[in-house]
Amino acid sequence: MPLPEQLPTTNGDHGMTRRSFLRSTAAFTGLTALAASLSPLRELADYTSVEQFMQKYYKEMTPDEMARVLQRIEGEVQRQYGIRPHVRDYKPMDGVEFVYCLNLTRCIGCRKCVHACVAENNQSRNPEIQYIRVLKLPHGSLDIEKAEHNYDAKQVPEPGFFYMPVQCQQCKNPPCVKVCPVNATWQESDGITVIDYDWCIGCRYCEAACPYWARRFNFTKPEIPKDRLNPNMSYLGNRPRKQGVMEKCHFCLQRTRAGKYPACLEVCPVGARKFGNILDPDSEVSYILRTKRVFIQLKEEMGTSPRFFYYFDK
């Protein structure tokens, strides 16, 4: 019986041996696979430009360099969202140290602060990134183990429960700043701990160090509807983030460093949130810390010394 190997493999009509055909198709497939594996590079331009890669550390930038960076960010946002934003680098004011007071007697757990914050600070809508987590706790204890933040009630407040919104506590002794290996997060003179999104390497050490679960990581590219973008932006605050960087509450520094109240405070329907300058004896927060009696600094025993005070007033 003649074996197939002994048969002629050359076919004059096709001009190609089976071996050369297989070799060339294998090479073609291999090249396509290589191209496919490199295809993420096509999107590289979306999140890293040469200017950004060569950008200096925030604290080392001259005002001219900062102005160029802000222009680059404005251009990037316009390309991506079709809206020309107004990006500024807000500096802390002299003689100002911010403190937040939250009245647990008043809070009804309506979560309006959560969504006002998302709208003001251009957080990702899908997957959701929210700086404020409203905990529902049973009356009679402040045991975080018993807290729930996924509550889905028809009406709030529910009898027998109280609500405690938790966000960045802007600690005086912040553990997140200590662990950052590249100094991409630091505390400024007005007490706000900020993040340079262009300097963050996304190692998430700060997320692990924070006892308040206040830091959020952009696992994917943030998704913000164009019609919901807030065009009033700041470099250290609410400019759109990219994939792979940390973010967190910064007391709406684009508002508060311009003298305004934070967004979560203005939207609170019961006036449970109070914000101001603790160095000013006539401010609302000074009055509250002077006259109210019971204060809670969350996880006080950690020694973080939060600038966020929870209190009861009845």
């Binding site: 305004k260 203005e266 329907p269 006036g271 109070k274 300058n277 009055y287 006259t291 109210k292």
Partner: peptide
């Protein structure tokens, strides 16, 4: 009267 009860909006400064 001290600004500690009720809603406020506008400027803290």
């Amino acid at each position: 009267e001290a600004g500690a009860h009720g809603r406020t909006s506008g400027f803290w400064n």
